[in-house]
Design a protein around this nucleic acid. Structure first.
Lengths: 162, 162
DNA sequence: CTAATTACGGATACATGATATCCCTATTTG
DNA sequence: CAAATAGGGATATCATGTATCCGTAATTAG
């Protein structure tokens, strides 16, 4: 059970977009080049963000993406679910219903106890991701990324942002 | 990102084995029939449990599986990791290293901040699964499963347990 | 107005992993 | 000895993730 690599891509792209000045846009091409990713395929991940309403887009030259909310309003969970989907990691096939000891047509009162435990774990996972915003991430990065690379990257981005 | 169905199977099988009297064994055939599952394929899941040391096996007629530990020592996490593997759901490809603004041969000081957040969420998930034992599960089931079905199932199982 | 650039979506191909089945072997029980 | 069992290898099938290509509509720069 491994998350799509698109999740990683989307997270890093949102980190970059979080540092973008108000009203400016960064293209798929720039984001792909910055992260060394296939442009066409990265585009799919960004489209997922767009469909989820997490980013805003414009067309034409100087077009691209910007965040739709402030970085402190955007959580890791938002991005992960936009790309990966909001479904649960544990799918209950209700195999208890196959128990030959059951009377025919017996109907369960509620969800299976096994599934409930698994779903609680899922919720713990989601809860952890919901607690971290991109404002938090930027703060962390600013503190630990080499200052030269940090400012160099920003320069690189701004040169390409429409 | 969805867990294998084998995880669900293994969890339900361990639930049954948790109710098995000391020293008795239940075969793949019985477990498959009880849950309406393909015997040969379920066998693979049970083999994973065996390789992880969670269950003990014997061969021959009246052979099969029993838990290797007491139910209150066996956690959901044990079973999930035995079947699904203990790896992380988020794999860091370290795409930050592709940043063209980096000096050549630059070496990161530590793991990526994005990955650390994702790994913390993974740990929250694991932690939630580690907190629940099969003694807990049996207690829940005993309280909420229809008493007729509950005892009927036990009878069914004991009739087949070697 | 024209040409270039962009997001977006559809179609397709490929690789990988999950699902499932079959068969053979060694071991144990009756 | 005969039957039943776990275990493991080989194989087939299907779903999904990964990746590329192309066409369309919209927007901007010149």
């Amino acid at each position: 059970m491994i998350l799509k690599s698109q999740v990683e891509w989307a997270l890093h792209c949102c980190a970059i977009l979080s540092g973008l000045p108000e009203g400016r846009y960064l293209s798929t091409k720039a984001l792909a080049e910055l992260h060394g990713l296939p442009k066409e395929y990265l585009s799919k991940a960004l489209q997922s963000l767009s469909q989820a309403g997490l980013v805003h887009t414009t067309l034409g030259p100087s077009g691209g993406y910007r965040l739709a909310k402030a970085p402190n309003e955007l959580t890791f969970l938002d991005v992960v679910e936009a790309v990966e989907g909001g479904g649960r990691t544990f799918v209950c096939q209700n195999i208890r219903a196959n128990n030959p000891c059951r009377p025919k047509g017996f109907c369960e009162s509620g969800p299976c106890a096994v599934a409930r435990v698994m779903w609680e774990a899922d919720e713990a996972w989601r809860s952890a991701l919901r607690k971290v915003t991109f404002a938090d991430l930027v703060q962390t990065l600013e503190a630990e990324v080499d200052p030269t690379i940090w400012s160099g990257t920003f320069e690189w981005v701004l040169k390409r942002a429409g």
